[in-house]
Amino acid sequence: MKNNLKIGLLIFLVIFIFSSIFLSSFAAEKEYKIYVVVHGGIADPFWKVCEKGALDAGDLYDDLEVIYTGPAVFKLEEFMAYVEAALASEPDALVCTLTAPEAMDESLRAEIAKGLPVVAINAPDLRDPEDRIPVLTYVGEDSYFIGVKAAQETLARFTPKRAIFANHHPGATHIEARGRGYIDTMKAKGVIAESLDITEDAVKGAEMVAAYLKAHPETDAIFCSNTMRTETIIPRLEADGVKVGVDVKIAQMDSSSKILEYIQEGKVMFTMDQQQYIQGYLGVVFAYLSAKYGYIPPPAPVSTGPAVITADNIPALEDLVKEGYR
């Protein structure tokens, strides 16, 4: 028994160390290494599109290695740990979401001062201009405006009695800014509007929206901040007998095959498209060109949205969604 344990542990050690050395010899060193760190979750269909953009950009250049990472589900502390790990790897450039600029300020500012090119994507630093982290540029949505635009598009179709912004990432400043844009615009038109925290869990989130509608049955407009959440909210509300698209009209962010179906069926009025493929793609291209040639990218914001997708746009988008570009 004792000998078995000793031998087992020794074999374990030897296999691990030799396999490590063996495998590491295959890891061909590329000249430029760029980390792309997003707040996640990386398993979210939305982020798969961004990842494809980043990796496609990496494939453009033979001397470029792109490492894309982030937490499995949104968790700020874990995201920060990935940012720190990426910085500790001493990459040639970093592309990241500025999800919580206050929390990221200290680390990023120090590295930028040392000359690291940093490109922000998807989530901008929304603080006063003089307080912002001095990144090269920002590629992505104008968060507040996207909320304003979603409210305006809704109001152009009907005037809700009560509206909610369903926030799936409480703590993410850009998502909160979207909510503020939506709520401010609704309130300016006299509509009761508020933010509802639907948590990181899509299933729990659907339950929370269902409960909110029971407490406030006059609610007839929802702006949902995430595709996966809309995909769970609609069947959950229908299970309660709510006629989605009639009793409650939904607007939402980004697209997926299912969302396009819902738009065609009239269950989702429209979706705001922030074209996250471009965020990943241009983020990497700008970072690489800066690291290699010292090019300065276009100033922030390099806007990738909002585009509004309605039933009219679906024929052109269906295949692109399936291929992972939209």
């Binding site: 968790k75 700020l76 502390e77 206050e102 929390a103 300020d105 409480p170 703590g171 990181e200």
Partner: peptide, 15 residues
């Protein structure tokens, strides 16, 4: 953690 991040949020520490 809050002293490091300079922000607090109800979602911190989940799991």
């Amino acid at each position: 953690v809050i002293s490091r991040f300079n922000i607090a949020n109800a979602s911190f520490g989940t799991g």
